[in-house]
């Protein structure tokens, strides 16, 4: 297994800067869920900055039910061979052996993801032990900073995966950025108490307050289905967008994928947003989150 430290050329691998650095290269881009090498090619041709390899997109995980696990290495390998952009893959929350397997295969980023069935209901993976970087989901600042304390090199707001309803993505992005704006106005005495209340390490709360943003890159995820959804999340202040079921559950995946990529680049240019929103065919059908039983929501997984 690869370990952090000096390689044979005296170069440091797996450092925080190296792990966070790849996320910085993905900024302003779209990371797309793909289930086959053909999907991965479509995503790359549309301009995706990375792909997430998984066996079923979240909408299908929802529909099928049962236990959702790490994908078959063979299927991930096929996708890694098909494209030159970075390939991410999902491990279950707390399942550090799935993460070891993904690292040994050479995936570029691991998503410790609530979309899969959690393997541990108390502990997340100790991500400091890995050379490969991790991205983790969050619904608020406390959750984001706990994941960063565990070694996450990138954060994504959770949204509600597999619904095509952007409302939860908006809620979580607003929660994180609103809290960051509030701690920016706090003095040190207040920050100590705030850190305790949101169950996050004080040092990270203080660093975030000083930076005026999370110390790592933060993408939006969970429910983005249209170019307008993607641009909305960008204008709310995220660094980029994950699109899961929204592309390959739509009528014309190639066209929609390209339109969402362009909407993320030109997120503050309404004239271009008009152009890329035209004639995209059918969007994914979607599930209205407000009518969904609490037990069906997956954003509550991971704590």
């Amino acid at each position: 297994m690869a370990t952090n430290g000096l390689n044979q050329n005296g170069q440091q691998t797996g450092t925080e800067a190296v792990k966070r650095g790849l996320a910085q290269m993905l900024k302003g881009g779209v990371i797309m869920d793909v289930v086959t090498p053909e999907h991965a090619k479509i995503a790359e041709d549309a301009g995706a900055c990375a792909v997430m390899a998984l066996e079923r997109v979240p909408a299908d995980i929802r529909a099928t039910g049962g236990v959702a696990r790490m994908s078959d290495p063979d299927m991930i390998d096929g996708i890694m061979k098909a494209v030159s952009i970075p390939v991410m893959a999902k491990a279950r929350i707390g399942h550090f052996v799935e993460a070891q397997i993904l690292q040994a295969m050479g995936v570029d980023y691991i998503d410790e993801s609530e979309v899969l069935t959690p393997a541990d209901e108390e502990h997340h993976i100790n991500k400091h032990k890995f050379t490969v970087p991790f991205v983790c989901g969050c619904r608020n600042l406390g959750e984001a900073l706990r994941r960063i304390a565990e070694g996450a090199a990138m954060i994504r707001t959770k949204g509600e995966a597999g619904t095509g309803d952007v409302v939860e993505a908006v809620r979580h992005a607003r929660a994180v950025n609103g809290e960051i704006r509030r701690i920016g106005a706090m003095d040190e005495d207040e920050l100590f108490t705030y850190a305790k209340n949101i169950q996050a390490p004080y040092a990270l709360v203080k660093e975030t307050a000083e930076l005026g943003r999370l110390p790592v890159v933060n993408f939006a995820a969970g429910g983005v289905a249209t170019p307008a959804d993607a641009a909305l999340m960008m204008q709310l202040g995220v660094d980029g967008v994950f699109v899961g079921s929204g592309i390959f559950k739509s009528g014309d995946p190639a066209k929609r994928a390209k339109a969402i990529v362009e909407a993320v680049t030109h997120y503050d240019n309404p004239d271009i947003l008009v152009k890329v929103s035209r004639n995209l065919g059918e969007a994914m059908v979607g599930i209205n989150v407000s009518g969904m039983p609490e037990g069906d929501k997956i954003a509550g997984r991971g704590w």
Binding site: A2, N7, N9, G10, Q11, Q12, T13, G14, T15, A17, V18, G21, L22, S84, P86, Q103, G106, V107, D108, Y109, T131, V132, P133
Partner: peptide, 12 residues
Amino acid sequence: NAFGRQVDSFEV
């Protein structure tokens, strides 16, 4: 991508 995948990324 002359050095390989992300696990081979480094600082020096």
